[in-house]
Design a binder for these strands. Structure first.
Lengths: 190, 190, 190, 190
DNA sequence: GATGAATGAGACTTCATTCAT
DNA sequence: GATGAATGAAGTCTCATTCAT
């Protein structure tokens, strides 16, 4: 009866607020403690009933998938920002450093998702996955055009290296920084 | 390791056999399916009762820790072997390739343990941890002495990079091989 | 290692005792209150943990199916007993009366099972189902041979009539008795 | 039924429309899938909010009771129709056949209600219950007067038999028809 | 009056751990 | 010592009912 577009009626204000709050709390909780946190605990922290979470996300996995998709988009946004705001030739390096030092630090969600652990991003959030791949392709192309990135490198390898860097991020910040520098050196032409 | 010293009486022969069998089955199972496999399932596959596992390992985590320690020692042995049997300058590179391509491929135990996931190796198996660090130090020293590994690299960074490589190992073998080559290139002096 | 036949090792004495106790309590509870009783409640009444029930019956439905199968066998045994101990020509009538007055009274399990409500007996307990059909066939044949049961009657109709009688059993005993007499009169030749 | 008498104010037109729609959808849904269908699902199918259902019916059971009462009245109407439009002596038989073959077939609501399953019709809808008893009395009297129904039969037994017939209705139509014929034969004088 | 989001008790099920046999 | 049955505390998910919008 109310006007809605494409059959998707907009969420009521309070519902949208709750959904966002759940997503945010879920992100923080999953990032800090991993997938094993009970849904009830997330509900408690978000100040809602467990049923509310299940209204918005039919299963725990769906909640996790939503968090992951959100997080991957954020990551891609960050990369695009770096690409546009600085030296395109250095954007890939800056991106990897940012992933390791600022983002990956203790973000189980992003690390696990990129490594395909506990979730198949490509299957449950194809758009986010594509977004990430596209970004990596753009960063790679920019670097190769500028001559700062070796030519014999393609997106799949780069993605694998990103996953490797994320794993490095779990370490002490200074160690991680130095390790990342070493790894990124390998990306430059000899 | 020593027989009947310090009040530790040696296991009866059948008990020792059971302990070894459990450890082996637990390794295979955890490696293939991760920590979430029930203890009962491991008992079933090992052909023993669940109580037998608990007689040898007080908790599931202790069993996992024993598996991890065993596995890390195997890894260190492999590295030491490479160091003694071939070109010492290339041993580190050969070791990393082996870790990624032969070992890490689908070994949840090793990957997770090295990444500090689900277990703190340093805390529960300090000897294995020290063993691994020692090995990395030896591989590093040999490479630096031979001039094949950059001088501004220390064990902590190298360990972080090993972890990164393991994460890469989860990928398609060919992609992982190329990615590892890129990473190891970063280890060489410019 | 222990000798067992056909791969089915006999239940340990205590386990068998528990299993029987659970089955008995489950029968009484389901019979009195229907399928909606929680498994936890049955566990409580049987004096065991919920896990114990799930060790013997993997799902609630499996428990229910076991109860039903047991109950249907009892019913068939009763019928066979009547067939052998009295006038074969009257056995069918005696059987129907017994079902209504002694058994069906408030036995949700039997009534629902025979009516195919909440469970498909044929699917989950084919042997019990076959047993019941066989018995009905025997009762019918005996009656028809003795000339006390009309000839134009077959097992499927008889089974439907049994279900109908069971439903009657839910009523006040005296009313049910009279109603059953009327129905069984219909089974006799004119 | 009367407008605005005794403090019961008539429903606004749209509210009445909603109430009727809910009742109709609830009947269809309960008949097809039983009492276990969630209230939300009925609301969805009726195109109203769950709150609307609860405005008209204070509990799910009240909704079910209303459906049952409605349905029993329909049944009684059908019986009365048969009584007036055809041979009064055969009306009872026609009625039973209709119940089994046309109505009972897969109508969980009617079968369960008549069998006292999930609801006590006499308690929650005394008028409907009385209506049904009255009808059965009329059908019985007509048959007995015409000599087509045995004299030693009273309403309670007849009601029990009706319940039994309904249970038969769950079966394959042809089998149910034959079984009903057998049962109704029992109603005729010898 | 209508809506549908939120609630929260409770269902079924799993599994680390203990303990009688 | 070994066994595997029993325990019971979670965990995920559902749904009757309430209530803010």
């Amino acid at each position: 009866m109310a006007a809605d577009i494409g059959g998707v009626r907009p969420l009521r204000a309070d519902a949208a607020r709750n959904r966002d709050r759940v997503l945010e709390v879920a992100y923080e909780t999953f990032a800090a403690e991993g997938l094993s946190v009970p849904v009830d605990e997330i509900a408690r922290r978000a100040g809602v009933g467990a049923g509310t979470i299940y209204r918005h996300f039919p299963t725990k996995e769906a909640l996790y998938a939503a968090v992951v998709a959100h997080r991957i988009r954020d990551m891609a946004d960050r990369g695009r920002q770096l690409l546009q705001s600085g030296d395109p030739g250095e954007a890939l390096f800056a991106f990897l450093r940012a992933m390791v030092l600022e983002w990956g630090a203790s973000d189980h969600v992003l690390i696990d998702a990129l490594a395909g652990r506990g979730i198949d991003v490509h299957a449950v959030a194809p758009e986010a996955d594509a977004d990430a791949r596209t970004l990596l392709g753009e960063l790679l192309a920019a670097g190769q055009e500028a001559g700062t990135v070796r030519a014999d490198l393609d997106v799949p390898e780069l993605k694998a290296i990103l996953v490797g860097c994320q794993a490095i991020g779990a370490y002490d910040a200074e160690v991680a920084a130095r390790a990342t520098d070493v790894v990124t050196d390998g990306l430059r032409p000899r």
